[in-house]
């Protein structure tokens, strides 16, 4: 839809459900996927809580949008950077997060993990490499 290809980074630093930011951030990512830009999504600080498995919003009466993260690969959003230090601080490991994969069309549609765990310094490098950063 556009001749210009920019590097877009969506930065998620807030936990889901307590506020709407995580949910409406995801809506932006999904819409943005239609624009054929170079998209990355960052999860740091409380943003890592968005990706935890086992979210059940039934009793709380909220909409559970966590399954949508597993569909991001279908929208060609395949780079989900998760900060190691943020996981550590919150007592989480990669095993606590959803298994999010995408099919690599350049590699015979092999299923590959979308989550890329990076150090804080590497996350800073990811941020410094962008054209547009949208924060939620």
């Amino acid at each position: 839809m556009s001749e210009i290809i920019k590097k877009f980074l969506y930065v998620n630093r807030k936990a889901p459900y307590g506020t709407i930011y995580a949910q409406e951030s995801l809506e932006v990512v999904l819409i943005g996927a239609a624009f054929d830009q170079d998209v990355s999504v960052a999860f740091l600080d409380d943003g890592v809580f968005q990706l935890t498995k086992g979210q059940d919003t039934t009793a709380a009466g909220l909409k559970n949008f966590s399954p949508t993260f597993r569909a991001l690969g279908d929208y060609e959003v395949t780079k989900l950077y998760v900060e190691q230090e943020s996981l550590d601080e919150r007592g989480l490991t990669l095993d606590d997060l959803q298994d999010i994969q995408y099919e690599d069309e350049d590699d015979d549609y092999a299923e590959k993990p979308s989550i890329i765990v990076v150090s804080r310094a590497e996350m800073a490098d990811v941020m410094a490499d962008q054209d547009v950063i949208l924060s939620f």
């Binding site: 630093r13 740091l44 600080d45 804080r120 996350m123 800073a124 941020m127 410094a128």
Partner: peptide, 25 residues
């Protein structure tokens, strides 16, 4: 190739400023 970071929260309220300063170059 530098970045402008903005912080609009008191550092006594939450970790935003500290987190920001941990990600600057």
């Amino acid at each position: 190739m530098a970045t402008l970071h903005t912080v609009n929260k008191s550092p006594f309220q939450n970790q935003t400023l500290i987190s920001c300063l941990g990600h600057t170059k």
